[in-house]
Amino acid sequence: MNIVLQVWRQDSPESRGGFKTYQVKDISEEMSFLEMLDILNERLINQGEEPIAFDHDCREGICGTCGVMINGQAHGPQQGTATCQLHMRKFQDGETVVVEPWRATGFPLIRDLVVDRSAFDRIVEGGGYISVDTGSAPDANLIPIPKLVADTAFDAAACIGCGACVAACPNGAANLFTAAKISHLNLLPQGQSERWSRTENMVEIMEEFFGSCTNHGECEKACPKQISIDFIALMNADYVKAKFKNRRLVSQNG
C-alpha cells in the first residue's frame, strides 16, 4: 500500500518546525506504524537526508516509550493500542496521515517527534514508592488483599507512562497518569503508610508541569492501557482527604 505522510520535522527545541510531506510507497499492511517509519527512514538515509527522530523501545506495547499524534489522535485511530502495536492495515491505501509530536509545555520537544517526558519522573519521585522491610523475604501471600482490590490496583498499575493522556487532553493535564500512579499504591495495604503524603506531593508536583482536569474524558480514550478516569475521581477524593490529614500531622509536630 501507499500512504502520504505529513511529519513534523524540527531540528532542535529552539528552531522553527514544520510539516514535511513524504510519499511512502510499497509498504506492507502487516507493518506496524513504527516499522513503516523505519522503512521511510532507511529510504531517507539512502537519499542522504536526515532520518525522522522518534522514540521507541520494546515495540510490544508495554514500555511506554513510543507515542505520536496520528491524525489528531494520540497513538492513532485504534483504541487501547500504543503506536508500536498500530498496524498499517488500519489506514486506507493512499490516505494522508498527519504525524505530530505530543504537545505540552511539560513535555518540551527535543527533535522531530521526540519529546522530553521527564516531568513524569518528577511526579513519580514525589511519592511513587512504598516503605518495605528489607530483612528476609516475607512469606508469599502474607498480606490478605481482596481479589477485586488487587484487580483494580493492577488496572491502575498497567500505566506505561507514555504521555498519551497529556497529549490527548485539551487542557494538557496529566491527571490520568498521576491518578494511575497514585491509585495503584493507594489501593493496596502496602501503600497505606505514605498514602496521604504521596497523594498531596504527587498532585502538587503534577500541577507545576501540567494543566488541570476538566473531565473531558479524552485521556481515557487515548490511553493504550485503557485506564479509566474512575482513578481520577479516586485521586480527587484522596487529595481532599490528604489535605486535611496532612494538616493534622503538621499540627502534631508543632
Binding site: 499524534m69 504537545r103 500541577e207 473531558h216 480514550k221
Partner: peptide, 25 residues
C-alpha cells in the same frame, strides 16, 4: 489560564476528539 500555559505550542494538524463533547468543550 493554567491550562493555556500547559500547552503554549498547540497542535498544528487537526485534532479529532473522541470523548470530549460540545458541552464540555
Amino acid at each position: 489560564i493554567m491550562n493555556r500555559r500547559a500547552r503554549t505550542t498547540d497542535y498544528e494538524g487537526p485534532r479529532s476528539y473522541i470523548a470530549a463533547n460540545y458541552a464540555s468543550r
